[in-house]
Design a protein around this nucleic acid. Structure first.
Length: 423
RNA sequence: GUGGAUGUAGCUCAAUCGGUAGAGCACCAGGUUGUGGUCCUGGGUGUCGUGGGUUCGACUCCCAUCAUCCACCCCA
């Protein structure tokens, strides 16, 4: 390897124009979530390792083998967050939110870290956008959250979409189903893949999610979670589905849908798409209820629901060339000579104060090069300043696409440009 | 973790059978133009990913290694 520095494997630089497409996603999320009453929270990137072990679950692959864990100088065990939900739950508890308000709606975004093999739409530092609601147990909220996601992706223009939903049960329902599943699978154990033979003991629900063909055939005949829900959970799930129907939100009930994280209870969902050539990484959002996590972490028993959006994957399946998301330059100011450049700088300053996107050529290069750059930047208008313009205070404002020119006085430039750009 | 492909200029890529490398893009200048986008002309950079091996001679063949991409697995 050469001497020049390189980024860490699986951790990439986000550069223009791709960053503009990300900004569009983030803006769309912010605006939509704000309408639903979510407020932004930014927890730290690093937490005590213990939080993730307890919050995400010891049995999960994430905690088992994917965390970036290290000892700091005081020998505390810290971990780069592998997801956002646990840190947000910690903040909810630490700031005693339950005592301050009955319902808390938070959203957050930022990098998360998992030590995994790299692949399309899969990185070691990647970005998630989360929404979490604390304090509501009722099923209409589940439907609202799911429908909001469908609205978000509709607004982003992602298609086709499939929203899978399931209810993995909790408490006694979960234990009963787990027992029934183990009872069903044990006779077939010899025919299952090595991973599933292990899962049969550690986390039998995960067997349902196995992609191995032989295992899938076995699982196809397995008992369904939905048949093992008690009346309360069954009624909850039915209301979720009925509400989604009333909202006109299309979903597919998938009894074999299981999430990889241990904390989910009851409703779980997963948004997938075939857009964007994501291959097997077609899950772009995943979430569900985690009604026991806040209590398990030592907080007041508080029902909760949330989801995580995979930002890279979402951007990959969003339509549109990234360049089209870059803010277009309103005016490009070309200048010849230092006196003209000083004036150009001042004019640009004034135009920008008026909200116009302006690029000034500060380099001492020829007019040809300046206009080529104006063209390349896609500027709506260009203004050329030289000694003559400085002397007269008048200049020509050129519309690049049509090459038509408007006579302008520099004194009225801001007003003129504002009017032209608004037209 | 398993399997496959690819590493050559800042970027995208070429280089026949082994004879120490070229093009386009991008960038700048000149010509044309109104000091002005197109067009024309000119301008230069490579430890050929890295380390070994074979050979008179390696970008080319062999081995190793690293990186990137893709599939599987898992996940968002």
């Amino acid at each position: 390897m050469s001497e020049t520095p390189t980024s860490v494997r699986g951790m990439n630089d986000l550069l223009p124009p791709d960053s503009a497409k990300w900004q569009h996603l983030e803006r769309t999320c912010r605006d939509l979530f704000t309408r639903y009453g979510y407020a932004l929270v930014r927890p730290p990137v690093v937490e005590h390792t213990e939080l993730f072990v307890r919050g995400v679950g010891e049995g999960s692959d994430i905690v088992g083998k994917e965390m970036y864990t290290f000892a700091d100088r005081s020998d505390r065990s810290l971990t780069l967050r592998p997801e956002l939900t646990a840190g947000l739950a910690r903040a909810y508890i630490e700031h005693a939110m339950a005592a301050k308000e009955a319902v808390t709606r938070w959203w957050s975004l930022g990098p998360v870290f998992r030590y995994e093999a790299i692949n399309t739409g899969r990185y070691r530092q990647f970005y998630q956008i989360d929404c979490e609601v604390y304090g509501v147990a009722e099923p209409t909220l589940d439907a609202e959250v799911i429908a909001m996601l469908l609205a978000l992706y509709g607004e982003l223009g992602v298609a086709p979409l499939t929203m899978l939903v399931n209810n993995v049960g909790r408490g006694e329902d979960r234990s009963r189903y787990r027992a029934a599943l183990v009872e069903f699978l044990t006779p077939h154990a010899a025919g299952l893949c090595a991973d599933c033979q292990r899962r049969l003991v550690t986390n039998p629900l995960r067997v349902l999610d196995c992609k191995v063909e032989a295992d899938r055939r076995v699982v196809a005949a397995a008992p369904s979670v939905l048949d093992h829900l008690g009346p309360e959970a069954r009624a909850h799930f039915d209301t979720v589905l009925a509400t989604l129907d009333e909202l006109g939100a299309p979903v597919v009930v998938e009894p074999r849908l299981v999430r990889g994280l241990d904390y989910y209870t009851g409703t779980v969902f997963e948004l997938t798409t075939t857009a964007g050539n994501l291959g097997s990484q077609s899950t772009i959002v995943a979430g569900g209820r985690y009604d026991e996590m806040i209590g398990d972490l030592g907080g007041p028993a508080t029902p909760a629901i949330g989801f995580g959006i995979g930002v890279e994957r979402t951007v990959l399946c969003m339509p549109g060339d990234p360049a089209t998301f870059v803010a277009p330059v309103g005016v490009f100011i070309a200048a010849r000579g230092e006196a003209a450049r000083r004036r150009a700088t001042a004019l640009a300053h004034a135009l920008r104060a008026a909200g116009i996107v302006v690029e000034v050529e500060h380099r001492d290069v020829g007019m040809k090069a300046q206009f080529r750059r104006a063209d390349k930047l896609g500027a709506r208008y260009s203004l050329a300043l030289g000694e003559a313009e400085l002397a007269t205070g008048a200049a020509k404002l050129k519309e690049m696409a049509t090459r038509a020119e408007h006579d302008v006085t520099l004194a009225e430039l801001v007003a003129t440009v504002t009017r032209l750009l608004a037209a």
